[in-house]
Amino acid sequence: MRPVWVRLLSVVALAWFACTPVHATPDDEIAFGMERRLKAAFIYKFAQYIEWPADAFASPAAPLIVGIVGADSIAEELQAATEGHAVKDHPIVVQRIKPGASIAAIQVLFVGKSEAARLSHWLNAVNRRPVLVITESEDALEQGSTINFTTEERRVRFAISLASADRNRLRIDSRLLGVAQRVYRTQ
């Protein structure tokens, strides 16, 4: 356990350094890197507040597969941060999804900024299956994403669409709703 803690702490520390305004640096490169790490940490933490329907997993110990599209840096960060971690007995597995690849077995799909234009395609691919769709582009929620990262005063925030979660038969912990920047209950 201890090594997991240590690693997690390092991730959190990084995230903290990244987001603390006091220590924020105007350097965009640095800010960008930090933003990626922070989002990776958030993706992992989101999974802890989401409840999938039982048919989302093949078995109670089946891995929770996080598919990353168009955000390799985040995929890297997440990979490093969640190595050996599990959410509700589901070990976390990070997959980089290439355009055109199947997303049949995944439970979380992160669509990066670079794939924002093809979002609808990914949403169609999800097709109301119990998949948590996370995006980082404007109007993503309107298109059908469940959680969408925003940046506010240089801080990473997020909004949630309950309608989208409902559609994909996901239940979101109200505590998560409590820290969301905005929660959309209808389309």
Binding site: A15, W16, C19, L38, F42, K45, Y49, R155, V156, F158, D173, R175, L176, G178, V179
Partner: peptide, 14 residues
Amino acid sequence: RASAVALSFEDAPS
């Protein structure tokens, strides 16, 4: 417990 989420997601106002 209540502020765990806020801490997790760096939500100081919360």
